[in-house]
Each structure stands twice: as structure tokens, then as C-alpha cells.
Design a binder for these strands. Structure first.
Lengths: 183, 183, 183, 183
DNA sequence: TATGAATGAGCTTTCATTCAT
DNA sequence: TATGAATGAAAGCTCATTCAT
């Protein structure tokens, strides 16, 4: 853990805390305590609390966006796109629970922080094209909602300890359900 | 508006603000300003900020829970239960956007406020019974996730101005998609 | 002292402190302690530390400016104008030492605080007209410097305890010297 | 500029900043940035911020004091003394604007920094002797105020861009005016 | 000599809460 | 019931100073 640069350790503590307690609900002292430094030290790496959240949002958005661009967009059929998207999202959520939770919070508590472009818009674009080309008769917003919403919720249930199935089973079942829904 | 009791006006302002800015992100002054009274006056009606959120959570939970109990649970088949649940949720979300948004925030930002019993648990129970009785081969958590998650997301998209379809069309499409997914 | 509104008491404490220790050298705690309230209470009357200084500057500037406009500008001859100006300044300085000292600090520590229009500019205008009309052969900037500078310094010496003469004697002598200088 | 020792470059940056923003209004970081080094490096040359200001005050005071001792005190008549003093002060102010401005700030913001002996006291002594010997009938404090105050103010006006006359003209006029005032 | 990270005290400001009126 | 002033704790942030490198 000490091998990481302090800046990176601050960023990781911040995602974890912001995603659980919100931006306002997390104090600089919380972050500092988690990293094991004093509050003042944070300001050597980030200009302000807002600066931290801007940094995180950009990073997470770019990371997830890149995965989607690389793995999902190149898929040929609508069905394959949806299938891959579910897979990418579920894998991302299980590998980066804090980041995934962060994205959800960020979506909803909009007035707390400056809004930037989120991956959702790019995915929506993809579904709009599929709809236009007649590959599906569900309006794009509904496809997006079913896919992201389902993954989001199952993740929250897992997070809350209410879902006990394995990651494998969850991916299998949720993908199957979603594919039936949208095709 | 002035016909309402001050306590009710405070409660309404509070849901709207808590659901958009979070518990910590909303100040007593924010609420007072929205209601058109001073900060001190709030304490005539609620003992503390926590008291407001407790009151809201109980109220919203009970209201939505009652609707589910009355309209969803009596349904005979699994398919009818799901269909009715989607309908109840979509209608509730469009009629009470602040309350619905509040529930979502409340679910995720868990460490901000004391957790109470949410309607999700009762619904989960219902799906567990259906699963046990062999009415569906999807595990209950996945059914719950697809239903609630999809409705949740389409509502957020509406809220963000990203979904432009009418309430009617949205209900139709989302219900159709969800039914295909879970049956 | 308790008859005054808190806002006025804050303002008075602030001039005294700012004029002696500078803007940055004075803390909100200093002011609060002097007034006998807590730091938070200050913010019910002023939005920020900057707001206090803006308020003070406007007030002092307007007060002194008004006196000059009423008593100095109407004087007929150049000599009478200078004589009256010295009198007004000396009287103001002895009656409002904190405010007078504040003006001096404010003039010099320019980058600490937002600049507004100070009385000096109006007086300079007056001397420019006198110079144009041939009432004096000293350039206006020099006249202004001799008048204000001399009064300023004698005040500082008094303040430091280095000048022991009475207010009467000081006014007499300084006015006599200045009149000889500029006419 | 790089030929100078770092210590000297720190000192010069410090006078400039202290004289414009005050002692508290200037940070070690400000000084370091101006010199082009890091904050820590300053502590190789000065023990503390207070040490810098002590060093500056002593240096400036001694420099100006030496000039006065060499050029002003040896003058025979009271008139020659005043004349030379004006000349020395004006020349010093134009050659060392930061140092001159520093002296003014230092005089007024007394509680910020430890007081040391300033040149003013020595000059005051000189005028006291002249007064005792009957060379002038103006009390020494007034003479000192007219001389120093006038020079001070014309310098501030120049500094603020409000006086546009040349250094030559300013010296001529201010000396003429002051001599008329005190003799 | 110089850097850059860190500390710790103190600053300005916010905010839930109380209370006299 | 409501106001508005005040409290006191805690927040975000700054800054002089130290120290390992």
C-alpha cells in the first residue's frame, strides 16, 4: 500500500468515501484519516475538495468509457452489443465496486458537483443508431434503462448483502434476463 | 400552498432537497428558505434534522408499501404480480418524483442516515415465494433488480431530460421489456 | 456601549483593528473578542471579512468626502480652500483617529483589498482647477501632498506619542506652515 | 540577476512584497515564487519570517540613516538642513521605491512587527536642537511632519500613477514648497 | 544548497441548534 | 407559532516551519 504515491492513495480513499457517504457527507479529515496523513497534506496533491471529485469523475468516466468503446461498440449485432455491455458493466462493477457506486451517486446527486460527460450518453447514442436501423423496436432510453438499471440494482443488492449468489451466477442470470427483455 | 400546514410544507421542501442534494448537502436554511420561514421555526415542527429524515422515510416507505400491498400482492400469477409492480412503481415515480428520487438516494448513501425498513425487502420476499413455488426460474434478487432498476433508470433519464417519450409510452415499453425478461 | 446595534459595534472594532494591524493581520476572532461575541455571530451581520472592509471603506470615504464637499469646496479663494481643508482633515483625524489611520493604511497596502474611490481624487480635482485658473503656481499633486502628507504625519507622530503639543497648537502650526508652503 | 546571492534576492523580493501587501499579507510562498526557489530553501538563508523583516528593517534604516548622517546633519543652517533632507529623501524614494514604501508601511502597521529604531527619531532630534537654538519657531514635530509627510505623499501619488510630473520637477517643487513652509 | 512532502496550528466560514422576544 | 440573534462545533483551507533526500 505504501508503494503507491500519496496522490493515488488519496484518490482511492476518496472514491470509497464519496461513493458511500456522498460529497458533502465526506470530510477532508475522513479522507486524510483513511490515508494516514494530515488534512493539510491533501492540499499538496489536490487544490480543493472539488478538485478531487473532478479528478475522480474524469478518471472513472474515461476508464469505463474506454472499456465500452473497445469492447462494446465493435460488436456487430444489437444482441451482441447488449450482451457485451452487460458483461463489461458487471465485470467493472465487481472489480471496481467503489468506482461503480460512485458513478451511481454522481448521477443522482446532481446539484452537489459540476456535471461532466458520463459514459451513459455514448451508450445511448449507440442504441439510438440501433433503433434507427431497425435492429430493435424498443426505444433507446428503455434499452439503456433496462441494461444499466438492472446491473446497478443487482450490484446494490450485493453491496447491501441482500444478494448472495456468486458473481458468475449473477452475470449469467442478469444477462439472460436482459437479453430476453430487449430482443 | 398556504392552505397546507407548515409541517407539511417543510416535509415537502425537505424531500425535494434531500433527494437532489443529499442529506448533508441540504441545510436547514435551504429548507427554511424554500418554505419561506426562518430556520428557528423549523424546530417548532421537527426536533432535529434527523427527525425530518426519519419522518420522511417512514412516510414514503409506508405510502409506497401500502400501494404495493394493496395492488401487487393480491395478484394471482407471477406475471401479473410483476406487471402490476411495474405499473405501481412507474405511476408512483411520475406522481411523486421527489419521493421516488429520495428512495434511490436513500438506498445508496447508506452511511448518511439511519437505515430503516424499505419496501424493497417486502417485494423481495414476494419474489422469493414465487421462486420457491416454481413460478419463475430467475433468482428473486435478479427479478427485483430488473424491475426496480429499470424503472429507476428510466425515471432518472426522464429527470435528466434525456428521455423524451410520454409517460404512457414509457410505461408500455418498460413493462413489455420487463415482462419479457422475467417470464 | 450595549445601546449600539451589534453590526455597528463590529464595524467600530474592525476599523480600529484593521487600521492598526492591517487586513490580513486582523482575524475575525480578534474582532469577535473585541465586540464580546463569538466568531459565528459576525456572519449574521457581514457576509465575509471582505464585506466588512468594503462596508468600512465606503462609509469612511463617504463621510470624509461629504465633509470636504460641504466645507471645503464652497470656499472662494485658493488660500481659503487649503486652510479649510487642513482644518477639516485635522479635526477629522482627531475625532476619528481609527478611521483616519484606516484611510492611510488603505492607501498604501493596495493589493490587500479591493480599491474603491477615495476622497483624494476629488481634492486633487479641486487643486487642478485652481492651478488651471492661475490661483497657484504649484502643481496640484504637490499641493495635495503637502496638505495631506503633513496632516497625516503629525497625526502619526501624535499616535506614536512622539508629538506632545495640544490639538489646538498642532492645528495652528500645521495650518500656518502649509499656507506658507502653498501660497 | 542570477549573479546575486540567493539571500540578497530573497531580501529584495521580500521588501517589494512586504511594502505592497504587508507582513501578514505576504507568505513565504509568495517570496519563494518571486525568487524562483521553493519555500524550504528560504530557511537556508533566514531563520524565520520575522528574521527576514528584522534584517530588512535594520538594513533599510541603517542605509537611510547613514545618508542622513553624512549629508544632512553636517549642514550649517536650518534651511540648508531642511533642503538637504528633502533632497536626500526624494532621491532615496525614487531610487529605492520598495524600501521607501516599506518604511511607510512599517511606521503605521505597528503591532505587526517588533519596533526598532527608525531614522525619524534622529531627524526629530536634529529639529529639536534647531528649535532650541531659535533657528525656527515651528515646533520640531511639525517640521518633521511637513518634510517627511510631503515627500511621502508625493511618492505615493507617483506610485499610484496619479502624479505624472518628472522626478526633477517634483523635487524642485516639493523642496520649494517645504522651504517656504518651515522658514 | 535546494526540493518537496508533511505537520500542526490557526484561519475563515458554515451550520445545526438554542433562546429571548 | 415565528423571528432573529447568538452559540459552538466542525468544516475547508492556508501557511510557517521541519525534515528526509
Amino acid at each position: 500500500m505504501d508503494l503507491l504515491h500519496t496522490k493515488e492513495r488519496i484518490a482511492r480513499a476518496a472514491v470509497r468515501l464519496f461513493s458511500r457517504k456522498g460529497f458533502k457527507g465526506t470530510t477532508i479529515k475522513d479522507i486524510a484519516r483513511e490515508v494516514g496523513i494530515t488534512e493539510g497534506a491533501i492540499y499538496r496533491h489536490f487544490a480543493s475538495k472539488e478538485d478531487i471529485i473532478r479528478h475522480l469523475t474524469r478518471r472513472i468516466t474515461e476508464d469505463l468509457g474506454r472499456r465500452i468503446q473497445r469492447e462494446v461498440l465493435p460488436q456487430k449485432t444489437f444482441r451482441d452489443k447488449v450482451s457485451k455491455l452487460v458483461e463489461v458493466l458487471v465485470r467493472y462493477a465487481f472489480e471496481n465496486p467503489d468506482e461503480f457506486r460512485y458513478l451511481t451517486v454522481y448521477h443522482i446527486l446532481r446539484e452537489e458537483v459540476p456535471q461532466e460527460d458520463l459514459p451513459g450518453r455514448r451508450i445511448l447514442e449507440m442504441f439510438r443508431n440501433a433503433y434507427a436501423r431497425g435492429e430493435t423496436d424498443l426505444i433507446p432510453e428503455v434499452v439503456l434503462s433496462v441494461v444499466i438499471g438492472s446491473v446497478d440494482r443487482i450490484f446494490i443488492l450485493k453491496d447491501l448483502g441482500l444478494a448472495t449468489a456468486s458473481e458468475e451466477d449473477i452475470l449469467d442470470q442478469i444477462r439472460r434476463a436482459i437479453l430476453k427483455a430487449v430482443t
